[in-house]
Design a protein around this nucleic acid. Structure first.
Lengths: 215, 215
DNA sequence: CTGGTAGTATAACAAACGTTTGACTTAAAC
DNA sequence: GTTTAAGTCAAACGTTTGTTATACTACCAG
């Protein structure tokens, strides 16, 4: 507990394993492939982590901590913007554009989200920790913004609205492969992401009855 | 080609393998586990399908055909409903409620969608066929409805709107595990699904500037 | 009865798997 | 200089993997 940031061989193993786990899953990745990618020996995995499964848990922990650090949480601080519909629309638009940039930026390793989707599918036991410590605070923050946008929303309605907002961003991550196949693209380019974020921001604000946010 | 519906041992192997592939992935499932669940022996897999990978491809084909049969496509037929905003709102609401019922109904085996999400993640080669033959017609049908709702939409905008609509339903499927953990539920119950579909229908129609659909 | 085909079952195959052992290197401690 | 600890490495461990060779059963045709 309270361990320092992993370095050296440990870090090399975590990042190498992370990329392979994200691409091929836990069972689809062999310890020999991990060791080769990390530039070490197979025995190093069991020496540093005890087992392949422990390494996987450590990778999940590492990704969650790192992704959490990148998450901007300064949106709730300037309270005066929440007083006008235009201000709230702007806050929501910035939230959406920010998430698109966070999730699809080049500096966030692209295998992070792929690994998390696999955790959804495989029902990784450590997923509950992630939900309670990362998703729940996020959900409540978004719900708070949405209830400022429309104070008549019930608790349940606000929850569904927060789901809807997250759904619009998650879709482009989870369905990346079929979307690219459908659009006959190689990858998301910058102009496509900007257009997508703009559409989502306009749609959500329109649905909430807010004025259209300026770009 | 043009093979009959699989029966007997073949069908038993396909459904047994389907459930296991959906739950644990291709690499996470052993041929012995499949044979045991199907009530046969290991050799039957290679006898009937040639290899484990061929069986996996056959499972994908089977699921796609079966899921396609269940997909209702009669929404576009009653053209007169498209003439009023109320009519279009109603069509969209029925589309959304219909999808919730299709995806989360008891009679569609719950492992179907899980298998498809895995295909997204693993970039299964056969995915392109699915996209072109199932997703593209669906996308175009939804785009057609949306452009009737708002004729000023450009091609690109209509595409984004169709994404948004699908995103709202896909979210509840793809993020089922974290959603249930967040809400501290065991499974989606009927009243929750009805509430979710109602929210999505109201949100989409509101965003499109249509009148609120009646339940 | 005989021959042939389709399907099932057992047992074995080589290859790959996660893990462990024991020797070797390195470097700080005494 | 010796000791101690941490880390790396090649080789081997016992299992499990997907696949297959072989024998066996059932059924229809001649």
């Amino acid at each position: 507990m309270a361990e320092p940031e992993p370095t050296g061989t440990k870090l090399a193993l975590i990042t190498a394993a992370g990329e392979l786990f994200a691409e091929h899953g836990l069972e689809g990745t062999s310890v020999r492939a991990i060791a080769e990618k990390a530039g070490t020996n197979v025995a190093a995995i069991n020496y540093h982590f005890g087992s392949k499964e422990n390494l996987h848990a450590e990778v999940m922990r590492y990704v969650m901590l790192d992704a959490d650090l990148r998450r901007p949480s300064t949106l709730l601080q300037d309270e005066e913007r929440f007083n006008t519909p235009e201000g709230i629309a702007q806050v929501i638009a910035e939230l959406i554009h920010g998430r698109f940039e966070t999730y699809f930026s080049q500096d966030q390793p692209s295998w992070y989200s792929r690994l998390i989707v696999r955790a959804f599918l495989d029902r990784t036991p450590s997923l509950n920790v992630v939900v309670q410590q990362v998703f729940r605070p996020d959900q409540e923050a978004v719900m708070h913004i949405l209830r400022r946008a429309n104070p008549t929303l019930s608790e349940e309605e606000a929850c569904f609205w927060a789901f809807s907002l997250n759904a619009e961003i998650a879709f482009f991550e989870f369905c990346k492969t079929p979307i690219l196949l459908l659009l006959e693209k190689e990858s998301y380019d910058q102009s496509f992401l900007k257009a997508a974020a703009g559409h989502v921001a306009r749609m959500i604000t329109a649905a909430l009855g807010l004025p259209e946010p300026v770009e």
